[in-house]
Design a protein around this nucleic acid. Structure first.
Length: 558
RNA sequence: UGGGGCGUCGCCAAACGGUAAGGCACCGGGCUCUGACCCCGGCAUUUGUAGGUUCGAUUCCUACCGCCCCAGCCA
């Protein structure tokens, strides 16, 4: 499936049925992040699901900040979240909301529940509430304040709002069933007292609604038809429906749960991600190794690749962990047809072409994308002294070696066929320091006239007419597929080679003035992204987005 | 243990009673001035297990087994 074909899943089937039955004529979904942290690729799944449905059904998807808990939320996250959603390619139009904007309405509904005898003010402490909730098998015990009169409850609740009671001293609880086998129905808390400055409402309120009391009602107010959330909210659905029923609103959104995204070799919870940042294990929320949207963006991932990934993983109810390979594959697939090619020698080995005059420069025209000539070309200067990749030379070649070795020929990409005629080594270390070679002048962008076959093609750059570059080679953040599994501190499982900085790389002349945030495929190596913050003209810094598949390296290593 | 979910190829995931899609991964082979891309072929007699209903079951029923979630005044 390529991006653009419609995904199908059980949620879309429900929507199809609702449209067919006439239950709804317009589909309205919502993406409700809590502004207490950065978005990660797990959120991207939800974003693509919700906005994707709105797009395909010509409906709407609202962006709603689920800001009911001022103790944890900050305004700075709101902007970051909006930026991430836009970057992913989605637009909520005029429909940006805050749960906090519904506080007054929620309060009025709460009073109505009190009048109806469906909610009461509880004077018990958090500790007492916890102790009397019962267990999985034993029912809870009713609060001694459970049967206060509506009038007393109303008075108390108003005084709670008025600030007469200290933080945590009282709550408003829904009066449902302390013996319910579903713990969420054992008189859940609707309001807690908390003198906390709210980024949206300031100091207007000292009581704040809980998620359960705020979410369904917010959905109803906005006319959401399908409220999509993750599996752990499944047991909350009876409560979601109960509140809607009690306030008597006619619009009834339907909550549907799906499995959250897990990815191998990384962690996804905000808590763990936060630990990585706080402990300095990564450079920040936008460290290119992070699964955050900001991190992936900094790394060079594209929105289209992430969207394609989200289409491919599907949406279902079974707990699952997707292999990182699938994500990387969507990057390669999309970048293969969009990234111009370039030559970059990561670890240079000097080659002197003995039959090429000093000072002579041959400007060879090379297509940026051989399969899309319309993309244009650039000049590759060929000179007497070149650099090739150290690992493309092997003094004693192994079986199947198609690259350079003494006396053998190899094709220099876009240029000439080159034969290695000599090897210079450091007398003390034995390390190869320089190669001597000759080129076949008849082979400039052409095959040998005598019809002989040249096995391999390697990349190269002119030694004098190339530029130095810094490469940041990224690899999976963790060494194990499921970090933190089995009592192990996930911090000890970080991949020590998750970032390798290569300082002495050389890029072809055309890349001397590369602009930040440009993407290239460095042929035979991988896809790279000029770091948007650190790369500058004359001193380019490239982040490895994803390496090219390497069947040779794999078989050689295995 | 009570409640709510889920179990289809190594990883995702279709199939909605008519005889197991697709993607990723993997394994062969071809092509190749990127050992990339691309192309061809292979990859579940079987859908957690055991029974049952049916001409026919991944789809319906029953019982087991396994995994996940719920005892925040977090979301």
């Amino acid at each position: 499936m390529t991006e653009g074909t419609r995904p199908t899943n059980f949620i879309r089937q429900i929507i199809d049925a609702d449209l067919a039955s006439g239950k709804h004529s317009l589909v309205v979904t919502r993406f409700p992040p809590e502004p207490n942290g950065y978005l990660h690729i797990g959120h991207a799944k939800s974003i693509c699901l919700n906005f994707g449905i709105a797009r395909d059904y010509r409906g709407r998807c609202h962006l709603r900040m689920d800001d009911t808990n001022p103790a944890k939320e900050e305004a700075e996250y709101v902007e970051a979240i909006k930026q991430d959603v836009h970057w992913l390619g989605f637009d909520w139009g005029e429909d940006a909301y805050h749960a906090a904007d519904y506080f007054e309405q929620l309060y009025q509904w709460a009073e109505a529940l009190i009048r109806a005898g469906k909610a009461y003010v509880d004077d018990q402490s958090a500790e007492e509430v916890r102790r009397t909730r019962g267990t999985l098998t034993a029912p809870g015990t009713p609060s001694p304040f459970r049967n206060r009169s509506p009038a007393e409850n109303l008075d108390l609740f108003r005084r709670m709002r008025g600030g007469e009671f200290p933080d945590g001293s009282r709550t408003l609880r829904a009066k449902i069933d302390m013996a319910s086998p579903n713990l969420n129905l054992r008189d859940p808390v609707m309001y807690r007292i908390r003198r906390e400055h709210h980024p949206r409402t300031g100091d207007k309120w000292c009581i704040y609604p809980t998620y359960d009391w705020a979410h369904g009602q917010s959905d109803a107010i906005e006319g959401i038809t399908h409220s999509l959330c993750t599996l752990e909210f499944e047991a909350h659905r009876p409560l979601y429906d109960w509140f809607l029923e009690q306030i008597g609103i006619e619009h009834r959104p339907r909550q549907i749960e799906f499995a959250r995204l897990n990815l191998t070799y990384t962690v996804m919870s905000k808590r763990l991600l936060n630990t990585l940042v706080k402990d300095g294990l990564v450079s920040g929320w936008d460290d290119p190794r992070m699964p955050t949207i900001a991190g992936l963006r900094r790394r060079g991932y594209t929105p289209e690749a992430i969207r394609l990934f989200c289409d491919r993983i599907g949406v279902a109810k079974a707990d699952s962990t997707v292999e990182m390979d699938l994500l990387e594959n969507t990057l390669r697939e999309t970048l293969n047809v969009s990234a111009p090619r370039a030559l970059c020698v990561h670890r240079p080995l000097k080659v002197v072409v003995e039959n090429w005059d000093e000072g002579r420069v041959d400007q060879i025209d090379a297509l940026f994308m051989p399969e899309s000539p319309a993309t244009g070309s650039r000049k590759l200067p060929f000179t007497r002294e070149l650099f090739i990749e150290r690992e493309d030379f092997m003094e004693v070649p192994v079986k199947g070696w198609r690259r350079l070795s003494p006396g053998k020929e190899v094709r220099l990409r876009h240029a000439y066929v080159l034969r290695c005629t000599g090897v210079k080594k450091d007398s003390s270390t034995g390390e190869v320091t320089e190669l001597r070679a000759t080129i076949d002048p008849e082979t400039r962008s052409a095959n040998p006239k005598d019809g002989r076959k040249v096995g391999g093609t390697i990349h190269w750059v002119s030694a004098p007419l190339s530029s130095p570059a810094t490469l940041r080679l990224y690899d999976r953040l963790f060494q194990v597929a499921n970090p933190g599994a089995g009592e192990i501190d996930f911090r000890t499982q970080i991949n020590p080679r998750s970032l390798q900085v290569v300082e002495g790389a050389r890029v072809e002349a055309a890349l001397a003035a590369v602009k930040p945030a440009e993407r290239y495929q460095f042929e035979r190596k991988g896809y790279y992204f000029a770091d948007p913050k650190d790369s500058r003209e004359g001193a380019p810094v490239f982040n490895l987005i994803v390496p090219l598949r390497d069947t040779w390296g794999k078989s050689a290593a295995g």
